[in-house]
Simulated assay, not measured.
Amino acid sequence: MKRLTVKTSVAALSLSLVFGGMSAYAFDDVTLDTQVQMLQSLRDQGIVKGVSSNKFNPAGTLSEAQGIQMIVNAFDLSAGNETTEPGNPKWYHAAYDAAMAEGLSIPEMRDAEEALTREVFANLLFEGINTTGEYPVILLYNHIEDEQEIRPEYTSSIQNLLNMKVISLDDKEQFRPRDTLTRMEAAEMVYEAREFIDRYGKGGSSDETPGTVPGSGQQAMVPEVSSQTIDEKTVKVKISLELPNPGYGLEIKDVELSKNGKAIIKYEIIQPDPNKMYPQVITERSAETNIPSGYTPEVAPFS
Results as ranks from 00 to 15, higher is better:
residue 198 D to K: 15
residue 261 G to Y: 02
residue 250 L to Q: 07
residue 239 I to A: 06
residue 207 D to V: 15
residue 204 G to W: 03
residue 254 D to C: 02
residue 214 P to A: 02
residue 222 V to L: 12
residue 261 G to S: 07
residue 207 D to G: 13
residue 264 I to N: 12
residue 251 E to W: 03
residue 199 R to G: 02
residue 249 G to H: 09
residue 203 G to R: 11
residue 227 S to G: 07
residue 247 G to N: 08
residue 237 V to G: 03
residue 265 I to S: 07
residue 206 S to P: 04
residue 235 V to E: 09
residue 258 S to N: 13
residue 244 P to Y: 11
residue 234 T to C: 05
residue 216 S to A: 08
residue 242 E to N: 11
residue 247 G to D: 13
residue 215 G to M: 04
residue 209 T to I: 15
residue 245 N to K: 12
residue 231 D to N: 15
residue 259 K to Q: 14
residue 248 Y to T: 08
residue 202 K to P: 00
residue 200 Y to K: 13
residue 201 G to E: 03
residue 239 I to P: 07
residue 209 T to H: 09
residue 244 P to C: 11
residue 212 T to F: 10
residue 204 G to L: 10
residue 241 L to F: 04
residue 214 P to D: 05
residue 266 K to N: 08
residue 254 D to H: 10
residue 200 Y to S: 09
residue 210 P to R: 08
residue 243 L to E: 04
residue 237 V to F: 02
residue 237 V to S: 05
residue 266 K to F: 00
residue 217 G to V: 01
residue 263 A to F: 02
residue 262 K to M: 08
residue 265 I to G: 06
residue 224 E to Q: 14
residue 250 L to G: 13
residue 220 A to R: 07
residue 214 P to I: 02
residue 207 D to T: 15
residue 232 E to H: 07
residue 247 G to F: 01
residue 208 E to M: 14
residue 258 S to A: 13
residue 204 G to Y: 08
residue 225 V to D: 10
residue 199 R to T: 13
residue 256 E to I: 12
residue 266 K to D: 04
residue 202 K to V: 13
residue 209 T to N: 11
residue 243 L to A: 10
residue 199 R to K: 12
residue 266 K to I: 01
residue 253 K to G: 01
residue 233 K to P: 00
residue 206 S to H: 13
residue 221 M to E: 15
residue 208 E to Q: 13
residue 200 Y to G: 04
residue 257 L to K: 02
residue 238 K to G: 03
residue 203 G to Q: 09
residue 214 P to W: 00
residue 230 I to A: 10
residue 248 Y to K: 08
residue 233 K to L: 13
residue 211 G to Q: 05
residue 231 D to Y: 02
residue 231 D to C: 06
residue 261 G to P: 03
residue 261 G to T: 00
residue 265 I to N: 11
residue 240 S to M: 11
residue 215 G to E: 07
residue 263 A to L: 01
residue 221 M to F: 10
residue 238 K to A: 04
residue 221 M to C: 09
residue 223 P to I: 00
residue 238 K to V: 12
residue 201 G to T: 03
residue 216 S to C: 02
residue 245 N to M: 10
residue 206 S to L: 12
residue 236 K to E: 14
residue 254 D to M: 05
residue 235 V to G: 06
residue 198 D to V: 04
residue 232 E to V: 00
residue 208 E to Y: 15
residue 249 G to S: 11
residue 202 K to T: 10
residue 265 I to D: 03
residue 208 E to F: 10
residue 238 K to P: 06
residue 258 S to C: 08
residue 232 E to Q: 12
residue 202 K to L: 12
residue 241 L to T: 01
residue 250 L to H: 12
residue 257 L to C: 01
residue 238 K to E: 13
residue 237 V to M: 01
residue 213 V to Y: 13
residue 248 Y to V: 06
residue 244 P to I: 00
residue 260 N to V: 12
residue 264 I to W: 07
residue 201 G to Q: 06
residue 224 E to C: 06
residue 250 L to D: 12
residue 225 V to E: 02
residue 249 G to R: 03
residue 220 A to C: 10
residue 231 D to Q: 05
residue 212 T to K: 09
residue 235 V to S: 03
residue 226 S to Y: 01
residue 201 G to R: 00
residue 230 I to F: 02
residue 224 E to L: 13
residue 203 G to A: 11
residue 201 G to S: 02
residue 212 T to A: 15
residue 255 V to K: 10
residue 241 L to P: 00
residue 246 P to Q: 05
residue 227 S to V: 01
residue 246 P to C: 04
residue 260 N to H: 15
residue 201 G to N: 02
residue 232 E to I: 00
